[in-house]
């Protein structure tokens, strides 16, 4: 089998036309860091490949604290164009230097577990995804985007074109736990965005990587924390709930048993860090 065609459209219209025409027989790449290894290894033989890196989707737009990141913005682009420490942390811990120069914000959403260490931060911020097809444009939440193992809410003729982030309120923390320094893949990655009023948690979003088939929110742990102060007992109960509720992948780097333990440990640490941040304010 051979790849029949490599398309490099220069306009979104052109790209959406190709998507509409070829649907699932068209593989989409932007940075190439997910598709190329599989093609080089002979694991996949897409009939046609569309490379969307020329669509001018490498932008960052800000208005009223809301940020929109183009789908083909590279992780290095995030580091060059965005000052926000939480997003920088996440970009910084996604791959080694050359991979950050190639891998994109949009592509990271499609990374197989336990990759997707930028996406997990987006999930903690309740990001929305812009999805386009020839005659329609829609926004869906990132939670909706992840439909299940190896499955997303994106149709064959659709393209992810942007990610929109609401203003970041409250405190954030990001931890990627690995065996060795990046580009080592995650054992677990913990991303938390938490808002407090007078020391009481109003809203919290806990997103984990290495806890399921894609980056996942830990709603049960969130419910435990909301309305509580960040004290040892609440933190321990939340971390325990996350560890129990997780369905960690098992791979050459870590077993599910170990990942579960590390979810508990690193989420507990992350929450303690947020508690200490409050105390030093």
């Amino acid at each position: 089998m051979t790849i029949e065609a490599y398309y490099r459209p220069e306009t979104l219209e052109e790209a959406l036309d190709l998507s509409a025409e070829y649907r699932s027989s068209l593989d989409i790449i932007s940075g190439g860091t997910i598709a190329m290894p599989a093609i080089n290894e002979g694991k996949t033989f897409p009939a046609r490949v569309m490379d969307i890196r020329d669509l001018d989707l490498d932008f960052v737009e800000s208005s009223n604290g809301e940020r929109t990141l183009g789908a083909t913005l590279t992780l290095t682009g995030v580091l060059e164009k965005i000052d926000e420490p939480f997003l920088r942390d996440a970009a910084r811990h996604t791959g080694g230097w050359s991979i950050r120069n190639m891998g994109t914000v949009g592509g990271n959403l499609f990374s197989p577990p336990p990759l997707g260490d930028f996406a997990v931060a987006l999930l903690a911020l309740d990001a929305e995804i812009e999805v386009q097809q020839r005659d329609e444009q829609r926004w869906i939440s990132l939670s909706e985007f992840y439909a299940g193992p190896k499955s997303t809410a994106i149709e064959a003729d659709e393209l992810v074109t942007a990610v929109r982030l609401p203003p970041i309120d409250g405190d954030t923390t990001y931890t990627k736990y690995t065996r060795s320094q990046e580009p080592a893949r995650a054992i677990v990655t913990v991303a938390v965005n938490l808002e407090r009023q007078d020391g009481v948690v109003e809203t919290v979003r806990i997103a984990l990587n290495g806890a399921g088939p894609h980056p996942v929110r830990m709603h049960e742990a969130e419910d435990i924390l909301e309305g509580e102060r960040l004290e040892r007992d609440a933190i321990e109960r939340a971390a325990e709930a996350a560890a129990e509720g997780a369905d960690p992948p098992e791979d050459a780097i870590a077993s599910a048993w170990y990942r579960r333990k590390m979810i508990r440990h690193h989420l507990s640490n992350a929450l303690c860090e947020l508690r200490n941040q409050e105390e030093t304010k």
Binding site: Y6, R8, I29, G31, G32, T33, M36, P37, N40, E41, V49, D51, R53, T76, G96, W97, S98, I99, N101, M102, P183
Partner: peptide
Amino acid sequence: CKQGGCGSCTVLVDGEPIVSCLLPAEA
């Protein structure tokens, strides 16, 4: 490795280091 995992094919594209095994030549 042809998977972007070893770095032995690193070249500069417009001055940026990239792993050339993961960049389609046409790109």
